[in-house]
Design a binder for these strands. Sequence first.
DNA 1: GCCTGTGAAGGATTTCACAGCC
DNA 2: GGCTGTGAAATCCTTCACAGGC
Lengths: 212, 212
Amino acid sequence: MTLEIPEVVINRLPVYARALADLADAGESVVSSQALGDLLDVTPAQIRKDLSYFGRFGKQGRGYNVQGLLARLREILGLDRRWRVVLVGVGRLGQAIAEYGGFSPQGFEIVAVFDSDRESVGKPIGGAKIRHSDDLDAFLRTNGVDIGIVAVPALAAQQVVDRLVKAGIQAILNYAPMTPHVPHGVTVRNIDPVLAMQSMTFYIKQREPAGK
Amino acid sequence: MTLEIPEVVINRLPVYARALADLADAGESVVSSQALGDLLDVTPAQIRKDLSYFGRFGKQGRGYNVQGLLARLREILGLDRRWRVVLVGVGRLGQAIAEYGGFSPQGFEIVAVFDSDRESVGKPIGGAKIRHSDDLDAFLRTNGVDIGIVAVPALAAQQVVDRLVKAGIQAILNYAPMTPHVPHGVTVRNIDPVLAMQSMTFYIKQREPAGK
DNA sequence: GCCTGTGAAGGATTTCACAGCC
DNA sequence: GGCTGTGAAATCCTTCACAGGC
């Protein structure tokens, strides 16, 4: 049910939630779609329309209660619980992810870390011990895991994705520079700073007529 | 000119280019929009339409020359030259970025690294020496810098963005968990794994009717 | 026969604009 | 007077479907 909500809308909700959290921290108790839009470079109409998919959260003439709307968005997004995450790949990038402090405070707990290199198995990282990839499937089946993070080289990534999917993982955050194939029903988000750079250069180039 | 090309199209071009590079590495010399689409989970019509904004690169009955199309895309995106990048912020995240080996082979050269912490100034990192943020403006004006990477805490990020913009930087890769404000003509891409996670949980939740 | 390039159609998303309420 | 919620309009983007070339 409720599957008619556009994905673009879903992708904006966390941004709204983040801004609302900032407003709450700043002691604001009410915000209008106009004010929130100014903060996020989004039109007020878009914010109102996005929210209207889920209910009526505002008060005419006033705006939205910051805490109240934040709580509702967190509920809608499922951020009112903690999520269990496994990380696969402990190269340079994987290490940085394992030691990144930003996930846990937001409710994403890296409960296990895997690598295919037998040398590194057993070493502690970001509070967990590195396990061997061979134990991935068993671990996933025994422990309730919600999300997988893939941080292995591109050539190994599809295999890892396949194993995660086969074990029932429904959401994958992919750091490998490739496009993973997943069956319908599995959600993927790709993090690739190089691709982001490569689209920006187009626009720089546009503005510098003849190119150095 | 050529500013009628949808941004979504521009954002897909690097993905196409990456797949073409992989095909080239695999020794493929020709690819159809169908085959490329299968690789990327994109419809063939979309690929053909996207490319049609820039010219006619294929041959009926055959498909596209892999090397040829790759070269054209790289040219369109401005990937046929090297780009000079500065990194601001050398906390945990900034360090990982500075030492990340993925930018340079793709033509993005981190030519200088800045931090506001005087303790760390002078220390070597990823091949550069850390400079103090106070020297950022002078550096940008003296050296030709194309792109800025922001990896400072959210509260300091807008200030850094403002300084980059004031110095004429036209593209910013933002790792801070906030929405930067930039004037028209400056391109921003945000990298935020937490937001990516937070949109995926919505979909997991959808599929698990009543919550754990 | 296969596959591109592309107008036209269709679908999705954004914006408008205003009734209704505080 | 200020602001939401929302149908309707406008815009944007994707997909269709086929003429044309290899």
